[in-house]
Amino acid sequence: MLYPSSLPKEDPPPLRIAVCLNSYNSRFLPAVQASYSANKGDFPEPVLFDLIVLAGANVDARASWDFILKIHNFIRTVVAQYPDKKVVGICWGHQTISRVFGADIVNMDVPEMGVTSINLTEEGRKFFPHAAATGVLRLQQHHRREVTAAPAKFAPLAQGSQIFLNDNNTILTFQGHPEKDAQTARLRLQHDTPRWFGFDAAADEKAWARLEARIGTAHDGDAVWGRVVQWVREPSRGLYAPRAG
């Protein structure tokens, strides 16, 4: 006789993930959209997905354009009507979610580009056990603005406002790009380096080579996404669940 503990374990069903692409008027957008099943202009129906990812964008997260305010409203609607829904914010998504919950965004003194070492907090070491010993994550970065501090009801999992987790265990945000490999990180290299740092490959070969090397450095993107997949299957803490009756 086979007892329940000895029966083969079935694999969990595949996750249903919606990725919101927020780039505006970018020549790279068709290439990015081609990697997904894209519905232009539509917000995902939260009930149909296990995870909603609010991705990066090439606009200022402090702006109040109509499409940005619609995204703000979508975030608030998800939190209010689907309090247990898992949401991940990446780069612009990290900044936008932080803004919705009251945090400030400022220009950086020096923009970040390429793989950067991020120091985890104690909570971050617990959340990312593969990095508990070193206390460091390495992620691709590509941004010139940053969040000044974690918004209310969010805990910093890394120093420098790099990673936040809300106290309901449903919203996780990254300033960096765990989804980017070196090839993807190079897409905007030629466009952004001159206006961010004041040089290009022709003007300063050594500086360009250093930046190229930094982009090509090994990173923890795959491990981070593995942890995100685990986290999506974890329960919320029920802090905002509707009361019975």
Results as ranks from 00 to 15, higher is better:
residue 1 M to T: 12
residue 6 S to V: 10
residue 12 P to D: 04
residue 15 L to Y: 05
residue 16 R to Q: 12
residue 26 S to H: 09
residue 27 R to V: 12
residue 30 P to D: 05
residue 31 A to P: 01
residue 32 V to S: 04
residue 32 V to Y: 15
residue 41 G to S: 03
residue 49 F to L: 04
residue 55 A to T: 04
residue 55 A to R: 04
residue 59 V to D: 09
residue 62 R to P: 09
residue 67 F to P: 02
residue 67 F to T: 00
residue 69 L to I: 09
residue 75 I to P: 06
residue 77 T to Q: 12
residue 78 V to K: 06
residue 79 V to F: 06
residue 81 Q to M: 11
residue 83 P to Q: 08
residue 89 G to I: 06
residue 90 I to H: 01
residue 92 W to A: 03
residue 97 I to N: 04
residue 102 G to M: 09
residue 103 A to M: 05
residue 106 V to N: 08
residue 109 D to A: 13
residue 118 I to N: 08
residue 122 E to W: 00
residue 122 E to Q: 14
residue 123 E to F: 01
residue 125 R to P: 04
residue 130 H to R: 07
residue 133 A to W: 01
residue 134 T to I: 01
residue 134 T to K: 12
residue 138 R to F: 08
residue 139 L to T: 00
residue 142 H to E: 06
residue 143 H to K: 06
residue 144 R to G: 15
residue 148 T to F: 01
residue 150 A to S: 13
residue 151 P to A: 04
residue 165 L to T: 05
residue 167 D to K: 09
residue 167 D to T: 13
residue 172 L to C: 10
residue 173 T to Q: 06
residue 179 E to Y: 07
residue 180 K to G: 00
residue 183 Q to Y: 12
residue 184 T to I: 14
residue 184 T to A: 14
residue 187 L to R: 14
residue 188 R to N: 10
residue 189 L to C: 11
residue 193 T to R: 03
residue 196 W to P: 07
residue 205 E to P: 11
residue 206 K to G: 09
residue 215 I to M: 12
residue 215 I to L: 08
residue 217 T to L: 13
residue 221 G to L: 09
residue 222 D to S: 13
residue 231 W to S: 08
residue 233 R to V: 04
residue 234 E to D: 11
residue 236 S to P: 02
residue 239 L to K: 12
residue 245 G to N: 11
